[in-house]
Amino acid sequence: MFADYSMGELTAIFAMQGFAGLILFSIFVLMALGLAIIFGQMGVINMAHGEFLILGAYVTYITSHVFQDVMPGLFSIYFFVAMILAFIASGALGMFVEWALIRHLYKRPLDTLLATWGLSLILQQAYRSIFGAREVGVTIPDWMMGSVYLTDMIEVPINGLFVMGLTVIIFAAVGALMFRSTWGRSMRAVVQNRTMAEGVGIDSEKIDRLTFGLGCGIAGVAGSAFTMIGSTGPTAGQQYIVDTFLVVVFGGAGSLLGLVASAFSISQAQSILEFFLSGSMAKVLTLLAVVGILMLRPQGLFTLKLRK
């Protein structure tokens, strides 16, 4: 199958598909980060995670219009404002949902799954009622348009590079928060031994709410970044939920390093296969491989010894 291409062309193909894979990788990491906190640390399955992401995307969409209409002079920086707003909106909704729904269901994980699925349906319909069924896109600021030519055959889009950079920054921030901050210490303490953590004066309910809110907030930021490379529709979140869960489970829930490794291997496999097979077959084969590996190694790629 490689015979039709010259060596140089092949290199370029691999480089560009690899880069496309890197963008996919960034999206996976961004989406999975929030889930890794919520599922990996709290053990909560949030089926509405995709909808929190889309909320961030819609917030970005609204912000871009507000900037366009009210202060077009500042348009080139609207995205940074939008990202913060997306974090606040998704995070606040997440904390509300934790308070209203999730906290009653901590001991019933399968029921949490069903309830959050219900939530996702409600959010989807809400988006549809408010923003319409059609996909919407945002206007990308000028500086993010165009491509960088690495060689005459290899070009990479700037918005893709931007999203990748953003991913690195957000990932680093989350890592620092989890392993360097007081909140992170408290959260890990609650995860490891709730009773003991409460015993030493940690307000575990507050930690739960903050953790869930943070996970959702990160999803919102991911959604915001998402608008830079694609359009947003009411059901866009649902399309990613399976991939995201697989990324988290495949990486071994609870491990940030595992998350990166798993997001990287899944996205690279998919985007490279995509060039040689149809898009759907690439996806089928990738997902099947992941499911197959998970059947053989249910604990995922990287994992700490889980206590029962």
């Binding site: 269901l105 069903l114 309830a115 219900g118 939530l119 349906l121 409600i122 989807q124």
Partner: peptide, 14 residues
């Protein structure tokens, strides 16, 4: 309908 179905999921669990 979707609001109703979503609410049904939540109600039946809660």
């Amino acid at each position: 309908w979707l609001f109703g179905l979503g609410a049904l999921f939540i109600a039946v669990v809660m």
